[in-house]
């Protein structure tokens, strides 16, 4: 098979992408079960069906690069390399969670791997991403920031302010719009007449493109070239990744607004199933390799879950920690 088909990646790297996507899928299966057991509070927003976007995009980053994402951010944060167990622990509200139980499912962050935060007020992280880009530019670090957001987010003011600023300052940011066709319960066409969202970047003279967001290698390639452009100080890019969430918006949403057959059609184009089916075409990858990856991912998630469950809750007397830089 041609090098091009595999995006120049070797066997290990390809299996690594598969492994990450499967881990995210299984991780969220467990989150859902924990939710049903009342161990996850309030709400949780699964990215199941969209795993190829964060995994493909983050695989194109270099050490020192940063990432921001939304409340639908489990996949993005894990794709940056945040440990499974401490992510699960955060969602369980444990002291050893990545955010010491303060953040929860909507706010996973692990600055040690460049996962700068999961933002739950729509659009609030796009200006933040400009800030990470500004810091890289001023300090000359050469690092790039990738910023994930949804289709519905393109209607809020912060989106437009951030794209304009990033473009006029040539900030090293890659804006990745995960177009899953809905903002909450509203199909995108009901909230904007510009449904090819990549076109919106033209208002800010920013290059943009639409890719198949369920094709992990296509996402990776698009982000890799946007990253190269940003690193070359040529400015930001917007990528619209077409994808679909298998579940409702949040745990309380049965997604009754979906037209019949839509979910089934997208399930046929599941990012994990299609990639797993394609990989054995690679000269050095067998069906057994794929199976072994599935097995290893399942073990990793099961082990992480067990550890996270065993860890203690935060002590109420520590609730004043982390508010101020100096201890109270």
């Amino acid at each position: 098979m041609s090098e091009a088909r595999w995006g120049g990646l070797d066997r290990e790297a390809l299996l690594g992408l598969l492994r990450q996507m499967i881990e995210i899928r299984l991780f969220e299966d467990e989150v859902m079960k924990l939710f049903q057991r009342n161990l996850v509070r309030a709400s949780t927003h699964l990215c199941q069906g969209q795993e190829a976007v964060p995994v493909g995009a983050c695989s194109a980053l270099e050490p020192g690069d940063t990432m921001t994402c939304t409340y639908r951010g489990h996949g993005a944060v894990l794709a940056m390399g945040t440990p499974l167990d401490r992510s699960m622990a955060e969602i369980l509200g444990k002291e050893r969670g990545v955010c010491a139980g303060r953040g929860g499912s909507m706010h996973l962050a692990d600055l040690t791997v460049g996962a700068m935060g999961s933002f739950a007020v729509v659009g609030s992280h796009l200006p933040f991403a400009c800030g990470t880009g500004l810091a890289a530019q001023v300090m000359g670090t050469g690092s790039v920031s990738v910023c994930f957001f949804g289709d519905g987010t393109t209607n809020i003011g912060a989106f437009h302010e951030a794209l304009n600023l990033a473009s006029v300052w040539k900030l090293p940011v890659v804006f990745v719009c995960e177009n899953n066709l809905y903002g909450e319960y509203s199909p995108i066409a009901s909230t904007t007449p510009v449904t090819e969202l990549w076109r919106r970047a033209a208002s800010y003279a920013m290059p943009s493109a639409r890719v198949d967001g369920n094709d992990v290698l296509a996402v990776r390639a698009a982000v890799a070239s946007a990253r190269a452009r940003a690193a070359a100080e040529e400015g930001p890019t917007m990528i619209e990744a077409m994808t679909y969430r298998h579940m409702g918006h949040s745990r309380s949403d049965p997604a009754a607004y979906r037209p019949e057959g839509e979910l089934e059609r997208w399930m046929q184009h599941d990012p994990i199933a299609t990639f797993a089916a394609a990989l054995p075409d690679h000269d050095a990858i067998s069906e057994d390799d794929v199976e072994a990856v599935r097995h290893a991912a399942a073990e990793a998630v099961a082990g992480a879950l067990e550890r996270a469950l065993s860890w203690p809750e935060p002590e109420p007397r520590h609730r004043f920690d982390h508010v101020w830089a100096a201890p109270a």
Binding site: R41, A42, G93, K94, E95, G101, R102, G103, G104, S105, H107, E313, P314, E315, P316, R317, H318, R319, F320, V323
Partner: peptide, 14 residues
């Protein structure tokens, strides 16, 4: 308390 509301149950309740 003069602190943000934490996610963890033990902290929010306190």
């Amino acid at each position: 308390d003069p602190i943000p509301v934490a996610y963890a149950r033990t902290l929010e309740e306190a």
